[in-house]
Design a protein around this nucleic acid. Sequence first.
DNA 1: CTTGACCTTCGAGTAGCTCGAGGGTCTATC
DNA 2: GATAGACCCTCGAGCTACTCGAAGGTCAAG
Lengths: 132, 132
Amino acid sequence: MRIGQAAEQARLEASAIRFYESAGVLPEPTRSDAGYRVYDEADIELMRFARRLRALELPLHDVREIVQLRVSGEAPCQPVRDAITREAEAVDDRIAELTRLRSELQALQRRMDSIVDYWPQSCVCHIIEEIP
Amino acid sequence: MRIGQAAEQARLEASAIRFYESAGVLPEPTRSDAGYRVYDEADIELMRFARRLRALELPLHDVREIVQLRVSGEAPCQPVRDAITREAEAVDDRIAELTRLRSELQALQRRMDSIVDYWPQSCVCHIIEEIP
DNA sequence: CTTGACCTTCGAGTAGCTCGAGGGTCTATC
DNA sequence: GATAGACCCTCGAGCTACTCGAAGGTCAAG
């Protein structure tokens, strides 16, 4: 199977498959006489594995490490656990950050609305100055 | 005042100030005879304004538009309102996405823990295969 | 006159891809 | 056999928002 069909089966873009290969995440596939990449079912499964790890938003270097272990026949369980633990912490941190940011944005929106209600012609942009 | 002190006053990195200038966010400053960038208090205020907008995680092209309006003497109120509205929506979307992701990561962690509790020697990585 | 702190520009690096240019290949149809 | 259209190749650039390092110029103090 060539890269287009592989991409469809693995639900990745062909450009992403080439990129993963160049980044050492996926192994170099065999080539046809014409130089086309040729994949089999096991290659597709590996692509799906990588896609699932990326769907968890694991950084690519973690995906690379985990996929390489799997390719070499070692169980990548501990790296997967560690990566998921790190990722869960990163996600929690980012949610907390975005929650603070959302409060701040909502407060700004309320202030802008109230200023416009009371002084329809006035400029509200000075409220930005109040951000530390 | 030169760029180092300006960076300190505006709480930006000097490299960020140069980058903002090259990106058209901040205007080109006057130069000393030696070619050093020279800033006054109004320049610092503009830097702070840009920093505050970026602290709201507004994309740089929005910051550029808003800062340029302010430089040209126009009130950037409506663009600020629009940008904040867009940003609030983007933040809400991202929080929803990350909340889903956190649930998924926590579910994976629980599954991995339970598998290790019951079959301490087994590999848990097949649980990744269950991700669509 | 030298030292060290500061400044300059330019290019590359970060993350994770996508897209386009310029070219080759394969398959079906005429 | 020719040709059209779909597919593939590599390489380089682009996206975001900066940061860092190299190689070199400037300035004040001792």
